[in-house]
Design a protein around this nucleic acid. Sequence first.
DNA 1: TAGGCCATCTGGTCCT
DNA 2: AGGACCAGATGGCCTA
Length: 262
Amino acid sequence: MDRSILHPKEVCGLHRGNGRYGERERNRKRKIQKHKFLSSSSDSGFDVSFESPKHEIPPDTLFPPSKEVKRKKTRNTRCKSPTQVLRLKRNRRIKANDRERHRMHTLNDALERLRMALPTFPEDTKLTKIETLRFAHNYIWALSQTLGNADNGEITVNVGNVTVSITENGNMITSSTGSCAVAAQKRLGPQHTAGFPYPPQERFVAPEWQEYDCYSDQSVSPPMQYQPCYDQRMYQIHRPQHQLTPPSHHHMSHHNNMYQCL
DNA sequence: TAGGCCATCTGGTCCT
DNA sequence: AGGACCAGATGGCCTA
């Protein structure tokens, strides 16, 4: 079976078939076939049409070498038939796809663990990838700020409705809505009340409040100022500019599903 | 129906 | 030669 024309979900056994799929998929396959004919690649084993002897064009005709005309052959490679070359390319592509899929799953697993470590509102929908990363960054920043100002061995961090207290006697997470602690405990298991996987970080000066568009200007991002993510659920770290330590109680302007972080 | 989010494929680049 | 990583493209699903 030619994998190249399989839908990704089919390849992975994840395809949830429905009525609409058939027609769109047929169109997609037609597109792919067309694309294969028009494009070439160095590594893909799927550009069969272009590579057939009928269409073969000497590479130097299209892309004449700019610097080195003749390259020394450093390796004695065995001659391969076109069929063997195609098979080799296809196998490499399949392997590369598998690796990439596995890599993305690994990344997603890591992201999921991060998501679980963050305090969230149980009634909320799952944080998206970008939200998770942004929120984690803000959360870590908040922790680092708070740790720098810890008095009496007690640390309190407010993240929206959620208040996290770290004391010598243990950690506690509470919520003004009352259900968050339960949810956090469910997620993290009975031995935890809150997860703090990150070591205290070096303290740095809090930047002034500024708006940050997490999509349009990512170049501004690190070295890690807090980054409000402008989504329907918005996480903000809100503080007076002269005050570097978080206030001891919430600044709650809680409207339109917006969180204020500290 | 448009837009957001996501999984996957793909080709390029760098490294071992 | 092959693996890791990355970014762009593509198409499916879901929701407002």
